[in-house]
Amino acid sequence: MIKFRLLLWALGLMMKKGAKNNPDFQKQLEGKDFAFQIQTQDGGIVRHYVIKDQKVKSKGKAHVEPAFTISFKDAETGLGIMTAKDKNAFMKGIQDKNIVISGDFSLVMWFQGIVKYLKPKKKK
């Protein structure tokens, strides 16, 4: 599904922008050096992100050694959960087995914590 692929690409762009322009986001990157990936469970759609030297790089392919992987049941489920207004959508996705996480869970929690810095600013 093209929308999910686009969302993962945009996530990389937002993290790169945050790494340049957002002091709060920059603090979250301090001392971090790892890669993670988000994908569909069948591996049909996969994108990895490398956090290193307070910068973020992203590629539309699997990483050799991601610190953690978030696998969504399918592209539609991934899109729905990642764009949900409900703050509990992610945890519900894990409980419902629509999301499978492998690797370092503490880094997954870190990732959950940084997402709030990436939301576009509301226009007044």
Rank of each mutant, 00 (worst) to 15 (best):
N22Y: 08
K92E: 13
T83C: 05
D86V: 06
G18P: 10
W110P: 10
G31C: 07
I101D: 06
I2L: 13
M14L: 13
F90K: 05
P120T: 07
L118R: 08
Q41P: 02
K119R: 13
T83S: 12
K122F: 08
F36G: 01
L6V: 04
S71N: 11
K20T: 11
G31E: 04
A35P: 01
G60W: 00
E76P: 02
M82R: 00
I101P: 03
G31K: 06
K122P: 03
K124N: 15
N98M: 09
A10L: 13
W9H: 14
D53E: 14
L107E: 06
A84F: 08
K61Q: 11
L118A: 07
K121S: 13
L107M: 14
K119A: 14
G78Y: 00
K3S: 11
V64M: 11
A67H: 06
F105N: 12
W110K: 13
F34I: 04
V46K: 01
N88I: 03
K55H: 09
W9N: 09
K32L: 05
G12E: 03
G113S: 15
L7R: 04
K32F: 05
V56E: 02
M91V: 04
K52V: 04
M1D: 09
V56R: 00
K121C: 03
K122D: 10
R47L: 01
K16G: 10
N88D: 15
V115L: 15
G80A: 15
E65T: 10
M82H: 01
K97D: 11
M14V: 12
Q26R: 13
D74H: 12
M14G: 02
L6K: 14
G12V: 08
Y49I: 05
K55L: 04
K17S: 13
A62K: 14
F72I: 05
M91K: 15
G43C: 12
V46Q: 02
